[in-house]
């Protein structure tokens, strides 16, 4: 048995033909330890490959190359019993808390289905107890919600019920794909708080897929930033967000609107006229066409991940080839900083 819950080895996912298709995830390796439970954030813009990674872990589609091991076993070599167990141990919470419910059934139905399919309870009383326990874990009470219809609940409540449903199966891992992006800003905290509680009290790890760096910063233990299917930077969430190293991540963090009218965006930015194609044959750093600090070699060579800080903080950028201090960015860095304090 392995000490890792997940081991992702050189996984690539290409949609379409292998030589000309769209590379959604490129040569990706990562492992998730069994303990302690962690919230691992995958962030990046639309089309960066975030959801693809979630889908691969949920076993909804096989990787084009590479393998994914769950507790040491390749998830695509499971037998039927292993598949069943896997779908119990790895649960999902999706983006849209409105679309996942059948509007004709009461909330109770969501839980009854799980109890029945996994034969969790031997009688109705025990089933009700399990349901109540799961609902309590997300801060709700059965009497308040079970007899209601989905439309009678807020987006935040609906999303927490989805988490309660997942929790009832005592999973080891939950893939939460943009769980708060369709929920109002003022209600997001209730969902994020539940995720932290499940991590701490129940030892459930999360893959938190999001494009919102501020929530990632608030709850994430580790963060992985994807750009066009490649990992731009990863490390401890606080380190990466407070001291971003990769030029793309710096741009991303500068662009998060600050809730302070006296602290505007530093300068104006332009999007590039043409996006480089993401075919497997495309060479060089993916971010090169947009990078303010690009060098000639970035057009032809792909950077590895270099160490840029403690606790596995790495960035895939040639600037850090010789260590955590960037090789030649003195000027542009100082310009950025002076803007920031205007």
């Amino acid at each position: 048995m392995s000490d890792n819950l997940f081991e992702i080895r050189n996984v690539s996912k290409i949609y379409g033909p292998e030589d000309t298709g769209l590379v959604a995830l490129s040569e990706y390796s990562f492992s998730i330890p069994k303990e302690p439970a962690k919230i691992i954030t995958i962030a990046g813009e639309s089309g960066s490959g975030k959801s693809t990674l979630g889908e691969l872990l949920l076993r909804s589609s096989p990787p084009t190359r590479g393998e994914i091991l769950f507790e040491g076993v390749d998830i695509w070599k499971f037998n039927d019993q292993q598949k069943r167990d896997y779908h119990r141990h790895v649960q999902a919470v999706f983006q849209d808390p409105f679309g996942v419910y059948n509007p004709f059934y009461r909330i109770r139905h969501v839980f009854d289905m799980v109890l029945k399919n996994y034969r969790l309870a031997s009688n109705a009383t025990q089933g009700r107890e399990l349901t109540e326990e799961a609902l309590n874990a997300v801060g709700l009470r059965g009497d308040d919600v079970l007899e209601k219809y989905p439309h009678q609940l807020s987006g935040g409540q609906r999303q927490r019920i989805m988490i309660a449903r997942a929790t009832m199966l005592k999973p080891k891992f939950i893939v939460a794909d943009e769980p708060v992006s369709m929920v109002d800003a003022s209600l997001r905290a209730s969902i994020l708080d539940v995720m932290m509680k499940l991590r701490d009290d129940f030892g459930i790890s999360f893959l938190y897929v999001t494009h919102d760096l501020s929530t990632a910063y608030q709850i994430g233990d580790q963060i992985l930033l994807l750009y066009q299917g490649t990992v731009a930077e990863h490390g401890n969430a606080v380190d990466v967000i407070t001291q971003p190293k990769h030029p793309y991540v710096q741009l991303l963090i500068d662009s998060v609107p600050k809730p302070d009218p006296d602290n505007p965006w530093p300068g104006e930015i332009e999007l590039p006229a043409e996006e480089a194609l993401r075919t497997p044959s495309a060479k060089g750093c993916r971010f090169c066409p947009r990078c303010p600090q690009r060098m000639p070699r970035c057009e032809t060579e792909s950077p590895e991940r270099y160490d840029v800080g403690p606790d596995g903080h790495q960035a895939a950028c040639f600037l850090y080839e010789n260590g955590p201090m960037p090789s030649k960015t003195k000027e542009s860095m100082s310009v950025d900083e002076s803007n920031e304090h205007v």
Partner: peptide, 22 residues
């Protein structure tokens, strides 16, 4: 006040303010 307090920021990691919807 609640709306402004519940904005997560990138400068300070703090306990989140939890609200219910309408």
């Amino acid at each position: 006040e609640i709306l402004i307090e519940s904005v997560p920021t990138l400068t300070e990691r703090k306990p989140m303010k939890i609200n219910e919807g309408i």
